[in-house]
Structures are given as structure tokens and as C-alpha cells.
Design a protein around this nucleic acid. Sequence first.
DNA 1: ACTGGCACTCCGTACTTTCGAGTGCCAATT
DNA 2: AATTGGCACTCGAAAGTACGGAGTGCCAGT
Lengths: 337, 337
Amino acid sequence: MLDDRKLEVLRAIVEDYVSTNEPVGSKALVDRHNLGVSSATIRNDMAVLEEQGYIAQPHTSAGRIPTDKGYRLFVDRLSTVKPLSSAERRAIETFLNGAYDLDDVVGRTVRLLAQLTRQVAVVQYPSLTRSSVRHVELVPVASRRLLLVLITNTGRVEQRVIETYGEVSEESIGHLRALLNTCLDGCGLGEVPVAVADLPEKVAADDRPLAAAVLSVLLETLVEKHDEKIVFAGAANLAAVDFSRSLRDVLEALEEQVVLMRLLGETGDSSSLTVRIGTENPDEGLRSTSVVAADYGVGDQTLARLGVLGPTRMDYPSTMGAVRAVARYVGQILAGS
Amino acid sequence: MLDDRKLEVLRAIVEDYVSTNEPVGSKALVDRHNLGVSSATIRNDMAVLEEQGYIAQPHTSAGRIPTDKGYRLFVDRLSTVKPLSSAERRAIETFLNGAYDLDDVVGRTVRLLAQLTRQVAVVQYPSLTRSSVRHVELVPVASRRLLLVLITNTGRVEQRVIETYGEVSEESIGHLRALLNTCLDGCGLGEVPVAVADLPEKVAADDRPLAAAVLSVLLETLVEKHDEKIVFAGAANLAAVDFSRSLRDVLEALEEQVVLMRLLGETGDSSSLTVRIGTENPDEGLRSTSVVAADYGVGDQTLARLGVLGPTRMDYPSTMGAVRAVARYVGQILAGS
DNA sequence: ACTGGCACTCCGTACTTTCGAGTGCCAATT
DNA sequence: AATTGGCACTCGAAAGTACGGAGTGCCAGT
């Protein structure tokens, strides 16, 4: 139903609109792209494209702009991911290599991605449930208070305060610490509940209450809500764009963890890059934005997601290239640390 | 040189301008406040106030708006900090009490302050150099790699990777760990360099390289640049205001750690609240904003600062009240954990 | 199937007009 | 000397008006 030329016209409209931010008319189109036909022909094609819902006019007698459906078709069939320049790749590499701990890796990544795409970048910390235990530490911090410190293979360090409701000896703590570490070393965090199930039986009767308190805090730490940590950067880039919805709505959405989580979406099923365009977005305040997201991880193990948010009118090929490249490099960095 | 009535006029101008966001004229002033004189008199007073630089007109034949100097006088001499309502105080208390670790305390605080003031809130993590060591942990994470974990009395947990350039036995690590903890327990982080000075001499000759590596990383962690950690929230509130400088400039400034640090300024000398108005601000992009900041800490020990950033046209008494109240509550929460 | 031509639409811009809040100044009053 | 009512003046914001031009849809011709 859409012949090759019509697709070509759609692509041209998307590209021109993205670069000029102005509705594109038939005349301008034949001037800038050598389509080999006259503007009248293009007008006919445009009429069809509009009827099918791929483009729209802001008002009568104005040029056309792509609809969400138009962008969708463009992303799916009319564009290819644009690889970064080698200069950009080198910049990424040197910038990320300077990181000295996980916080720093994530912080640098999100700033880097924001700068690279000139949009808002979002990076999720490596998921706890998909990591494994590297070390568990119990530190007494007051007479009736312990600090549980959990270190994962991805370098995440989680800490929780434990109230012990009674004095606890150094020995008990040391014993429990050793037991926890033998139980859990290398254990996937998803399996922790199973792995510790029989632990209370192994401790001396006197230490059972302590063990119970520690375990309850440990298990709570793995509960979904606390599981996820996510950051963003580049909000300043939003100010340059003007949204149909107010800027305020978008900023508000960005400040909510849950919204950010939904934004990146589920970890991708097949291809690594996910693009969500305008109204495809679940959240009210983000109906005029698009998201390009990707999984990142070490080897074949997916750890979490990262991505970019911008106006639907965005340069998809370049953005997708940047997101893919950064996701890969982060995986490499994490693998090496 | 400024009699009481003129001061009263200035106060009225500030209050009206803050609440209406429109230049205030002599007529409107006598209507809204019962000053007991006519508008012509007020006009004369205004002329004097303008000559002295406390107010200005956006253009001839418009009302007056306060200058930075006018706000300064208002804050210093014409206003009193407005305490929060008891409902607000209760809300703060319950909200902050739910926090389960330092990250959570800081995160909740910054969101709370943003919501309370409807402006941008900034909170600095408890300064490392002003904290003391609660525990040091060494965790082997790979054959030639250790993780140094430092836990402070304020609940901050810092981690650094250490390359050992050689296999290291469990025993060596255990030994060094014990040594470190006896050396450093309760030691102020400022004194760490002194406290560990003679440590290398205490370890077995074989472990000297290991000790050196660990110490170098430990000392580096305390270097100023890494010392400070700072977060903000409520950027969405900026969108509601319009700045003379572009919103973009302000957002950009906010995303830079160093700028945020400068923003809060040095820890206050005398009174607990610091107000910096417009051009009193050191940073280019923040010349049209004001900052209200305060120290917070446990007991008489100052740990760090927090504050609020908004347009110069802000409700200073309320904002100051909120900042002061939140700073106090955070201190309490930290004391209890 | 494509094209050139043509009448039509309507946005954006610029120009003008009007309206009114606000000012500064002055002479009169207390 | 301080205050006041009066008055001419200023200037921005809002509303109205005019116009140019990019863009469209349609149709007859190739």
C-alpha cells in the first residue's frame, strides 16, 4: 500500500523536520532531496501518507510533520543505527576508564550519555536481584545496633541498620558473619531466600534472635522496592526544546523513581535497543517524549538498563548509536572491575 | 536617612511583589496596606528608596520592584523567620523517621525540602573530614584486587578498589584489617594521615607493599575532591518561575557538583542561616537566584550544609523557616541512627 | 502516472491604535 | 517642613488591521 517512493518521502520528512524543527512542505522537499519528481506528485504522496496517519499538518496550509506512527515506521524500517565517530568512541573510553567505584561509573555514564546526545540520560544501577553476593559484613555500631553491609559482584554496596534488642557479643557476630559468608558466597541474590532458609538451625540457640533479625533485614533489602536505584542527568538539555506538555510535567516525571523505572521498561526481549515513541509511553507527563533504551551487562548477563529521553522530534539514528555504544562500554568497564 | 515609614514602604513593596509577581505602584500600596498617608507621599518615599538603590522600575511609568539590595535590607532588618505550622512539623517528622540508611535520609530530606518550599533543595552529605571512622573493612574481590570499605560514624559508606600487584594471602589481609581498625577506630578522618603514619612499620616486611597500596588508596579517598557528595531535587519547581537568565543556565549550574558546593557556601560563622541574594552569588548562571542555606549536624558538631535555591523574588521568611526546621530535624535523625 | 497551473487558506509579522496604571512635579494646605 | 490633590505625561500591554508568502488541493493536460 505504500510504495517505495512514499516511504522515501516519509523518511525525508522525518529527517528534515528533525533538523529544522519546522513543518516541511512539498516544495522544500523536492529542493533538498533529489526525488526526481515534481512537487505536485509529492503532494499526492503526502495526502496518502496523511490519510494513513503517518504525517499530519499543524493547521491547514502548513507543511507536514511526522506523527508518532510516522516516527515508528521510520525507526522500524527506514533508518539504520548510526555508529559513533572514532573520536567519540575514544572520548567515551577515556572518560569511563577514570572511574574508581560503582557510583562513579554510573555517575560518569549518565553525564556522558547526556552530553553525547544532548538530551536527558537515565541509568539504572545494576539490579540487585540479578547480581550475586561477594561479601557480607556485620559491623557493630552501637551497643544494640549492627550495620549489615552487602557487597555484590557488580560492586554495589548496600547497607542497613539492624536493631538487635539486646546486647550481642563480638563472638556471636563473628560466628554469624562467617556462617553468612559461607552460605552466600557467590550466591545469586535471587536465591538468597532459599540459601538462608536453614541457617537459623545452624547457629547456637542463644544467637537465634540475632540471626532472625539479621535475616529479616537482609531479605527486606532484596524486596523489589528497595532493589532498584536509578539516576538521570542532562535536565538542562530539556530547556532547549519546547514541549507541547509543559516542561514542568516532564521534569516532575523525571524526579519520580517509579516513573523512571517504567520509562526504561522491561529488559528487552530480542534486539538490544528499545525505542518508545510519544504516546507509546505509559506515563501521562511523557506523552510528548521518546525514549531510547538498552540493556547493559557483563558478557551475556544482563545487569540493568540505561537510556535517553528526548522530544519525539529527535535524531533517532544518532541517539540509538550513542545509547548502544555507551551500553557496551559500560559493560566492559564493569567486567574489568 | 531612611525613616520608619520608608522602611515600612520597602517591606510592603517586597511582600506585595513576592506575592503578586508584578511591579507594585503607589496606589496599590496604600490600598492594600493601611499606611495612613496618601499615594503622593508614598511616591516621594519611593523616589528616595529608588535613589538609594533599594528599588527600581523595570521601565518608566511602571511600578517598583525590589533590587538585590532591597531584598538584603528586607532580610536583615525587616523580616523575621516564619516558623512552620505544627502540621508541617509533624509531616517532616514522620517522613524523615521512615528512613533506613544514610542515602535514604539524605534522599528524603532533599525531596521534603523541595516540596515544602516549592523550590530547588540542595543537601550535602555529612562531610567525610568532619566524621570519624567506625569501621574499616578489606574484602578480596579477585585474585589481585581488594575492596576497601570505610564506614563512618555518620553512616557514610565509601568504597574503593585496590590493585595489589601480587597475590595476597587471607592472613595478610586479616592482619592488616585488624591493624587498621585498632589504629583508626573512632579516629577523626582529618587525623587519619597522622594515625596511619607509623603503620607500615608494624606490619611484617612481606606485607609492606600491600599496606602501602591500601594506605595510598585510603588517603586518596580523603582528598577534598572526593570528600564531598551533594544532591538536589525539585528542579520541576524552577519551570514555574521565569528567570531573566534562561532556565537552561540555572539547570546547567545545578548539575555541576562544584557549583552546588559553592552554592551552599562555607559553613556559617555565627547565625545558623545564611542568605545569599542574586548578585551576591559567586556563580555566573545563578545571578538571578537566591540561596537560603544552613548547617546541620549532631549536637554542636556541624556535619554539612543544606539549603534551598529559588528566584530572588522568593518568600524569604517562610523559606528560612523551612530550611531551619529541616536542618534541625535532620540533625536529630542522624543523632538517633 | 505525472506535471504545471491556479485559486484559496491561513499563519506569522509588522504596524497602528487604544487604554490605563503609574509617574513626577507643583501649588495648595496643615 | 511634611503632606496632599491635581494634572500632564510616559510607556508597555493588548487588541485590531493589513499583508506577504509558504503551502495546499484540485484539475486539466501531457
